[in-house]
């Protein structure tokens, strides 16, 4: 099995290299470069040319690529011309905010998906199941950004239960309990809004897995052994149905990336997604490139995690 994991991990290396080249080429293809906007337009073109030469901007693309990637590996993504600070520093705090948001969303996603999926799958075609599948259809149909706006309007503005923007109340001291509570409070509404929508695919997936497993022959065997219905479900149906769900975990991460871009903007939550949209509108290329690279990395790692989890939990793959 370890061979499988090593091989699978090795595959991510070319994936990452290809991703970085793609991201670099895209950045190059965009109009302007690191000097655009940084320099006073009244400066003499010859001086600019000298600066370009000094910064290596006239080198062939692959030399530039290696310069860039060398920096990236050391955590240097260049300068944000808009915020006038290193990109890595700019992203650092936001990344932590997004991580917290993603984690909260994941936890909520599973808290919602597992009980609903189980009820829906076990009691399929009852009115309870119809209500749950009804909810999933709404979830599939409702665009996340509209749903999030509605949530923000009702719970943030009308009822005033949650803060409507930011990631922490201004003036709270980092490290204190109040700071933690404030962070959580800011997280909850965006995470819930996202979870309520993204969870529907997991609910559906779990439901169909359970219905599928229920009809397997070994479930009949379990009954023929004298297992009670609850034991049949807990020991045989659930275990076997949760396996593909566990493997789906990595792909959930990929799904989160798209979600955070919308959610963070709507809730004014200072994370990577919010930064991404603003960097696009401000043409902050270095920030944009760094974020695309990071999102891509997260997706690659998510897929890797999925495969590793699957190989760990499924003996049919584990034993080879």
């Amino acid at each position: 099995m370890w061979k499988l994991i090593v091989r699978r991990t090795l595959i991510t290396i070319p994936q990452i290299i290809i991703l970085s080249i793609l991201v670099f080429i895209l950045a190059q293809a965009m109009p302007g470069d690191a000097l655009t906007g940084l320099i006073d337009p009244n400066i003499d073109p010859a001086t600019i040319e000298a600066m370009r030469e000094r910064l290596g901007l006239n080198n062939p693309w692959y030399v530039q690529y290696f310069d860039w990637i060398k920096g990236v590996i050391q955590g240097d993504f260049g300068q944000s011309f808009r915020f006038k600070m290193p990109v890595s520093e700019l992203i650092g705090d936001r990344m932590i905010n997004t991580l917290w948001l993603s984690l909260a969303t994941l936890i909520l996603t599973y808290l919602i998906a597992i009980p609903l999926g189980i009820i829906s799958g076990r009691f399929n075609d009852t009115w309870l199941d119809r209500m749950i599948t009804g909810y999933t259809y709404i979830g599939f149909a409702a665009p996340l950004f509209i749903f999030a706006l509605v949530m923000l309007f009702i719970f943030g503005f009308q009822l005033g239960w949650f803060p409507t923007s930011g990631s922490v109340a201004p003036g709270t001291e980092p490290g204190t309990f109040a700071y933690f509570i404030s962070k959580l409070n800011h997280l909850l509404l965006p995470a819930l809004s996202m979870a309520l929508i993204t969870t529907v695919s997991t609910v559906q997936y779990l439901r169909s897995e359970i219905i599928d497993t229920k009809q397997k022959d070994f479930i009949v065997t379990a009954r023929a052994k004298g297992s009670s219905e609850s034991r049949v479900y807990n020991r045989h149906v659930l275990r076997n149905s949760l396996l593909p769900i566990a493997a789906f975990f990595g792909y959930e991460i990929t799904g989160l990336i798209g979600g955070t871009i919308f959610i963070e903007n709507i809730f004014g939550y200072p994370g990577m997604g919010e930064l991404f949209l603003s960097s696009i509108s401000l043409r902050d290329y270095s920030v944009m490139t760094a974020l695309v690279l990071l999102f891509g990395l997260a997706a690659i790692i998510g897929a890797l995690l999925s495969d590793i989890i699957l190989s760990l939990v499924d003996p049919r793959i584990r034993i080879k």
């Binding site: 397997k216 070994f218 065997t221 379990a222 076997n240 003996p315």
Partner: peptide, 8 residues
């Protein structure tokens, strides 16, 4: 027998 046994 293959399908009558729990694969996991």
């Amino acid at each position: 027998a293959l399908s009558a046994l729990n694969p996991l």
